[in-house]
């Protein structure tokens, strides 16, 4: 079982510390884990710290895995270069490798395109794509090496509703198949409730709570994370969902 655990993680830019003492129990692979929190809560900073792009105190424990198997998908979707979708995926696969592509590598690219419903766009150039398509390409690019620890910063922010559901399902399937730890920064609480097994709630650079999705995401936690008042109720089929009542009155 692949796990990822954080122990007293800190990180920041220059002298400004964004994260302080971020600690989590081991996050287990095989299902999606959501990283939730308001804008500027430190989600992207946490990802960059785990990915090794930022230095800081504390330890990241990779259980049963080498850190080279980690892939991080940044939030920025502004990919623009004279490259086709197919080439963009190849690029992630071949970093550090030779110039030649084997049939197996081409099949790997083909496979990840099919998984994220991008096969029909393979020969299109990046500048011709819509924002949502580019985001899907970015996701495929992140997973082409079949990493077993995956950090994705808002992977669904540019997707329409259909694509959000489709992509989250595909990511959950990937997690099940590979046993990978999948940590996704997400803003849509209902999507989190529908697709994620567990949640890490981040506010002001610190962890407010971690645990199974429904244990963490109650009305009180959502209120302290986002400052809105809401109810979490079961729909007629028994699925939990959040209903927003409005902006929370300061207490």
């Amino acid at each position: 079982m692949v796990t990822l655990a954080l122990d007293q993680i800190g990180a920041g830019y220059g002298r400004q510390m964004i994260l302080r003492g971020v600690t989590t129990p081991p996050i287990e692979g095989g299902a999606l884990t959501a990283l939730v929190g308001a804008n500027a809560a430190g989600k992207s900073t946490l990802f960059r710290r785990i990915a090794g792009q930022l230095k800081g105190p504390g330890t990241v424990h990779f259980g049963g895995i080498d850190r080279t198997e980690l892939r991080y998908m940044p939030q920025d979707t502004a990919m623009s270069a004279a490259l086709t979708v197919f080439e963009t995926i190849i690029l992630a696969l071949k970093q550090g490798g030779g110039w030649r592509l084997s049939a197996a590598e081409l099949a790997q690219v083909e496979g990840v395109l099919a998984r994220f419903d991008l096969s029909h766009l393979a020969d299109r150039q990046l500048p011709e794509l819509s924002g949502g398509q580019r985001q899907a390409v970015s996701i495929a690019q992140t997973l082409v090496t079949r990493p077993r620890i995956v950090l994705m910063d808002e992977p669904t922010s540019a997707l329409d509703l259909y694509r959000q559901v489709e992509v989250l399902n595909a990511l959950a399937t990937y997690a099940e198949e590979t046993g990978a730890v999948m940590l996704l920064a997400l803003h849509d609480i209902n999507q989190v409730m529908r697709s994620c097994r567990s949640v890490i709630a981040l506010a002001g650079g610190q962890v407010l709570a971690t645990g199974p999705t429904l244990d963490v995401l109650g009305p009180e936690m959502i209120r302290s994370l986002y400052g809105i008042s809401c109810r979490v109720e079961r729909c007629s089929r028994g699925c939990p969902m959040m209903i927003v009542d409005g902006v929370a009155q300061p207490t």
Partner: peptide, 13 residues
Amino acid sequence: TAIRLGEVRAAAM
């Protein structure tokens, strides 16, 4: 080639 996709993304690769 990767650098043309942006610094952050290239670093992530």
